[in-house]
Computed example of a mutant assay.
Amino acid sequence: MIHTTHNILLKFYDSFSKLDAKSMSECYHPDATFSDPAFGELNREEVCAMWKMLIERSKGNLTIEFSDLKSSKKSGKAKWIATYYFSKTNRKVINEINAKFKFQDGLIIKHTDSFSLWKWSGMALGLKGYLLGWTPFMQNKIREQAKDSLNKYLAK
């Protein structure tokens, strides 16, 4: 049986692959939360702004592939790959992500993306990221910069 939650996941990733942040945000519940290794914990307003910011900064240079969408009435999961050039270094990143979802009222109430921040830092930052990306210091610095850029974007 295909739940309406499956259609929400399809809409979310289809919109993402079309770089349509507005349609992505329609998939989130008003009380939604998001977390990932780079941005940490975000509320609905922050996560919607994060997708919009990342799409805008990619300047159309972002491709999204998604697979293994699975969902029930209350939960779901997906695999997706983001391929882009990191804006600060112009280095190519191919980030493989596992997503988990919780649903409420047919919308995403909790979205958790997981990926290797060390692997990401090696691609995005080069040798320095590869050598230091596993350290708590470097990972905290990456989180700090991601959150800082989001806060500046929200302040605009």
Rank of each mutant, 00 (worst) to 15 (best):
M50R: 10
I81D: 02
G122R: 04
S149Y: 02
G106S: 08
R143I: 06
K119C: 07
K119D: 03
N140T: 11
K11H: 11
D14Y: 01
H29N: 08
P136N: 12
L42M: 09
L62S: 09
I142Q: 04
H111S: 11
V47I: 12
D105R: 09
A38Y: 02
V93C: 13
K88I: 13
D105I: 05
K74N: 15
A155N: 14
D105T: 09
K77Y: 06
Q104T: 13
K52P: 00
D14P: 00
T33P: 00
K73E: 05
G76L: 03
S35C: 09
S72R: 08
K73R: 14
Y13H: 12
E144S: 13
G133M: 05
T135P: 00
T63K: 13
T112S: 12
W80H: 15
S58Y: 05
N140Q: 08
S121N: 10
K52V: 08
Q139V: 11
G40M: 03
V93S: 09
V93R: 09
Y153I: 10
E144N: 11
W118H: 12
E56H: 13
F137Q: 10
D113S: 10
M138I: 14
A78V: 10
K59F: 03
Y13E: 01
D20I: 04
C48H: 05
S75Q: 11
F39M: 05
D148G: 12
H6K: 10
W80P: 03
Y85M: 09
Y85W: 05
F86T: 14
E41D: 01
P136T: 14
K73G: 11
K141H: 11
Y13Q: 06
Y28D: 02
K147F: 01
L10G: 07
L9T: 03
K100W: 00
I97V: 15
Y84V: 14
K141N: 09
I8G: 04
G60L: 02
L131A: 15
F16L: 11
T33D: 00
P30N: 06
I109D: 01
T63S: 14
W134P: 06
W80D: 07
S75W: 02
I64Y: 06
V47L: 01
E65M: 11
H29M: 08
L132F: 12
T83N: 13
L125A: 13
R91N: 15
Q104I: 09
S71M: 03
G40V: 04
F103C: 12
T63R: 13
G40R: 03
I109S: 09
M1T: 10
S72Q: 04
I109A: 11
I94F: 02
I108A: 04
T83D: 04
K59C: 12
H29L: 07
A146H: 09
V93H: 08
K74I: 14
F137R: 13
I108K: 03
L154V: 09
S17Q: 05
